[in-house]
């Protein structure tokens, strides 16, 4: 999941990783300022469009979204009751007046707000996913180092990501070795299952420690501690003209979103859609 970089040559692939991070920041800012589901749908559509333009198979996106359905539903319901609204237009009550000391109703405003919340949530997740799918790990590490992360952490991060498939493979072997000695993993009860997995702790820890030590030896033997601050990188990050153009677009989007979402304009807030719905359906 973390290492699913899809090679390609489309615009987004070519961008400097720092521009891709600006993209992420742009989405975060826009969805923070906007709370209207119609406006947010546009943002969501734009994210999908970028994925499409970069030739990411849509199957990957839909399977990702499908896996999130339970979380999305929970998040939607949670948001229905999270925010108190002024003069809510209640559609129905979960706890009607008179039953308890408080009421719990679902209003038009709450539904619109929750829709917006879900769209915000999905936009951010999908953006993270876009950046990861379209950026090699090395570039992520490199741009973090460029932004001030100490190089030793950068190298460690790169090694960590690189070893994920190796560790997964090793874990599988350990599991199979235990299964071959009649150890049962497939319990329905999640607690028993967890307990069964605990058996893997000792061999996993031992092999991870052994490997960590071997890696430490290997990188020392390649001069890692020679002069960490003075180390160079095979790939250099340099902004191209394309990068500047795209950055300009993102900055424009940020400014525009700020204006549209500002308290003075108050267009991209959830009251826009609620007002629209109320105007159309005329709920008292």
């Amino acid at each position: 999941m973390v290492l699913e970089y899809i090679p390609g040559k489309a615009l987004f692939h070519r961008l400097d990783p720092r521009v891709k991070m600006l993209y992420f920041a742009t989405v975060v800012l826009v969805v923070a300022w906007w709370s209207d589901p119609i406006f947010l749908s546009v943002v969501f559509g734009a994210i999908i469009l970028i994925l499409k333009m970069s030739r990411v198979p849509m199957g990957l996106v839909t399977s990702f979204l499908r896996a999130l359905v339970p979380v999305i539903v929970a998040y939607f319901v949670f948001n229905l009751f999270l925010k108190p609204h002024e003069n809510p237009h209640v559609l129905f009550y979960v706890i009607p007046p008179g039953v308890a000391r408080f009421t719990l109703g679902v209003s038009v405003e709450a539904i619109v707000w929750s829709l917006a919340a879900v769209l915000r949530f999905l936009s951010i997740l999908l953006t993270v996913r876009t950046v990861l799918l379209l950026t090699p790990v090395r570039d992520v590490v490199l741009s973090l180092v460029r932004m001030g992360l100490p190089p030793e952490f950068g190298v460690a991060m790169g090694i960590g990501f690189g070893y994920i498939p190796v560790l997964i493979d090793e874990n599988r072997k350990i599991k199979e070795a235990l299964q071959s000695r009649a150890w049962e993993f497939e319990y329905r009860n999640p607690f028993r299952r967890l307990k069964a997995l605990m058996r893997m702790m000792v061999p996993t820890l031992m092999s991870t420690m052994r490997r960590a030590n071997a890696i430490a030896v290997a990188i020392e033997a390649k001069g890692f501690s020679y002069n960490v601050r003075g180390r160079t990188w095979l790939k250099e990050l340099r902004f191209s003209r394309e990068d500047y153009a795209v950055m300009a677009v993102f900055v424009a989007v940020i400014v525009g979103a700020a204006v549209v979402g500002s308290p003075m304009m108050r267009i991209a807030t959830y009251k826009f859609t609620s007002g629209l719905v109320l105007g159309l359906v005329r709920i008292p």
Binding site: L3, P136, V137, R138, V155, G158, I159, F161, G162, V166, R211, A214, I215, V217, A218, I219, K222, G223, F224, Y226, N227, V228, G230, R231, T232, W233, L234, K235, E236
Partner: peptide, 24 residues
């Protein structure tokens, strides 16, 4: 598998020279 520490082959080969600050 204990010595390959980078996400791509070229990065891995470059790892040593990078540590010694060899120009790009």
């Amino acid at each position: 598998s204990d010595q390959l520490v980078s996400p791509t082959v070229e990065d891995d080969v470059a790892f040593g020279p990078e540590n010694y600050g060899v120009p790009r």
